[in-house]
C-alpha cells in the first residue's frame, strides 16, 4: 500500500528554486532515505510535507488523501510526524511531559474536568503516564523521565524527539538527520532503534541523513537531491553506485 505520494512538488524562495518537481512514492513499512549535499533541499521537502511551507506547485497525498494546503497540526492529525534537524524540544518541560504532549490528541479529557480534577482526569492522566513511559523505554529514556528536556545530553535529546513524534501515532515518520552530532557508537545504537521502531510499531519511515554508513545500513530505497532536483532514486545499493551520485558527493 502506498503511504506517501507526491506529484511535482516544488517551492521557490524569491528567485531560488529550493525544490523542483519532487516525486516520491513510499510503500507501507519502507525505510526510505532522502540524501544529498548541503543545501540540496532535503529539509525543505520535510517542511513541504508537514505544512510548514506551502508549495508553489504540486501536491502531496497521504494514503491517497490530499494533504497539501493543510496546516501543520492538521497534517500531524492526518498521520505525519517529524523530528527537526536543529532539535526542537519543549525544553522547559520534563522528558515525560514532552512525550505526553505527543499523546495530546489520543488521550482526551475536557479542560473543565482538568480544572475540577474529576475522576476521569486522574484516570486519563494515569493512562497517559503509562503510555509515555512505554515510549521512553523503547528509547532507553525511562530513567530520565523527570529531567527537564534541556538537561538531557544531545544524543538523548534526539531520541526524545523521535519518541515524542511516535507518541502522535503517525502513519509516516520523518526524521531529519537523526544521527547528526552522534559518535559512531551512538549512531550504531540509533540504527538499531530505528529498525526496532519500524518493526515494533509497523512504521513507515522517511529519513534525511548525511552519515552514509547509516544510510546504506538501514535504508531500503533512496532518493538523491541536488540543487533542489532529483538526481537519482531506487534501491539503495543501485543508487549509491550511480556515477552521477558519486560525482555530486565527491565533487568534480
Amino acid at each position: 500500500m502506498t503511504i506517501l505520494e507526491t506529484k511535482n512538488l516544488g517551492i521557490s524562495f524569491g528567485g531560488l528554486r529550493a525544490v523542483d518537481d519532487f516525486n516520491i512514492e513510499i510503500q507501507k513499512g519502507e525505510l526510505y532515505g532522502l540524501i544529498g549535499p548541503n543545501g540540496a533541499g532535503k529539509t525543505t521537502v520535510f517542511n513541504l510535507l508537514t505544512g510548514v511551507y506551502q508549495p508553489t506547485c504540486g501536491t502531496a497525498y497521504l494514503e491517497g488523501k490530499k494533504i497539501t494546503g493543510k496546516k501543520p497540526a492538521e497534517i500531524n492529525k492526518a498521520g505525519i510526524a517529524r523530528t527537526f534537524q536543529n532539535i526542537r524540544l519543549f525544553s522547559n518541560l520534563t522528558v515525560l511531559d514532552n512525550v505526553k504532549i505527543g499523546l495530546h490528541n489520543h488521550y482526551k479529557y475536557t479542560t473543565a474536568s482538568g480544572i475540577l480534577r474529576l475522576p476521569f482526569y486522574f484516570k486519563t492522566e494515569k493512562k497517559m503516564n503509562q503510555r509515555a513511559m512505554e515510549m521512553l523505554k523503547v528509547f532507553g529514556l525511562e530513567e530520565e523521565s523527570g529531567y527537564l528536556a534541556s538537561n538531557l545530553p544531545y544524543g538523548k535529546q534526539r531520541k526524545l524527539e523521535i519518541a515524542r513524534a511516535l507518541a502522535t501515532e503517525p502513519k509516516l515518520l520523518l526524521l531529519d538527520e537523526p544521527a547528526a552530532g552522534m559518535n559512531p557508537n551512538e549512531t550504531a545504537e540509533l540504527m538499531k532503534t530505528i529498525r526496532f521502531v519500524r518493526d515494533h510499531f509497523d512504521m513507515t519511515i522517511l529519513l534525511i541523513e548525511h552519515d552514509m554508513k547509516l544510510v546504506s545500513g538501514i535504508c531500503e530505497k533512496l532518493t538523491v537531491l541536488n540543487f533542489g532536483t532529483e538526481l537519482a532514486k531506487g534501491p539503495t545499493e543501485q543508487v549509491l553506485k550511480n556515477p552521477d551520485v558519486i560525482t555530486a558527493y565527491l565533487g568534480e
Binding site: 508537514t50 510548514v52 496546516k71 501543520p72 497540526a73 500531524n76 492529525k77 510526524a81 517529524r82 527537526f84 526542537r88 524540544l89 519543549f90 525544553s91 522547559n92 518541560l93 511531559d97 504532549i101 505527543g102 495530546h104 490528541n105 515524542r164 513524534a165 507518541a167 502522535t168
Partner: peptide, 14 residues
Amino acid sequence: MSIRDNRIAAESVG
C-alpha cells in the same frame, strides 16, 4: 506550555 517552548514543534505534534 508547549506553544511557549516551541511553537513549531507544538504544531508538529498536532
